[in-house]
């Protein structure tokens, strides 16, 4: 109809390269979320102690992470640090930048979760002899993660899609690998259709893992 005839054979030949890229993408998405959540918990807790130095530093992190493009954050991690003589691989730069970005957004999500927990929960937990670390670990954070589970999953989809920016600094994640492969045959449409389908599958894998985590650790009331 549009005079375009699909040629799939070249795509099948390059599938191993695309699969390698897909694995890099999945890795960065999952690791950047795990690192991001850990940092976000620290940022959100630091921010609750208003006026402290830790709280101000956390605010700066969150402001910068949320109000600058992820693409620039990747450039800064790769070329910016490179200019200072700190040379890191493109993999580390993308992972670091997306984890930094995730941490900022997730800290805001967690803040809402913290605000939903009543002060009497803290008082009750302290009155049972728990120190602050135990109060957060066993009483507050489990509830925060239940309340914020869906927004966190939303952010993890963004993390997955943001990995495609790795292409600009030569990382062969799924988009980078696809771009490289199609440049040899120029079957652009076919390659990117397959890549899109692979992103979709990766997203479903991540959501499946998350459902497993939810079932195992976050079942029960509330």
């Amino acid at each position: 109809m549009f005079g375009y005839s699909f040629h799939w054979r070249t795509v099948w030949q390059e599938i191993p390269q695309l699969a390698e890229g897909a694995i890099v993408t999945l890795q960065i998405a999952v690791f950047s979320m795990l690192i991001g959540i850990t940092l976000a918990v620290l940022l959100a807790v630091a921010r609750r102690n208003e006026g402290s130095i830790a709280s101000r530093l956390a605010s700066v992190w969150i402001e910068v992470a949320r109000n600058t493009p992820c693409l620039l954050q990747i450039y800064l991690a790769y070329f910016g640090l490179g200019a200072l003589g700190i040379n890191i691989s493109s993999y580390a730069a993308v992972l670091g930048a997306i984890a930094f970005n995730n941490a900022g957004y997730l800290a805001e999500i967690l803040r809402g979760g913290f605000n939903s927990i009543s002060q009497t929960q803290y008082a009750a937990a302290h009155s049972l002899g728990m120190n602050s670390f135990r109060v957060y670990s066993y009483v507050v954070l489990p509830q925060v993660f239940r309340v914020t589970f869906r927004p966190i999953m939303n952010q993890s989809m963004w993390a997955l899609l943001n990995t495609s920016l790795g292409m600009v600094i030569g990382l062969k994640e799924l988009t980078g690998a696809t771009q490289f492969a199609q440049s040899r045959s120029f079957r652009t449409f076919e390659f990117f259709l397959v890549a899109a389908a692979m992103y979709y599958v990766i997203a479903k894998i991540i959501l499946g893992l998350a459902a497993l985590v939810q079932w195992r650790f976050l079942k029960g009331g509330r």
Binding site: S118, T120, Q121, A123, A124, A125, H126, S127, L128, G129, V139, P142, Q143, R146, L218, G220, G221, R222
Partner: peptide
């Protein structure tokens, strides 16, 4: 606090447990 139990006016069972 281990030897002083307290119960409050507001129910504050831990809802996730």
């Amino acid at each position: 606090r281990e030897k002083i139990g307290i119960v409050f006016q507001q129910y504050n069972a831990f809802p996730h447990l």
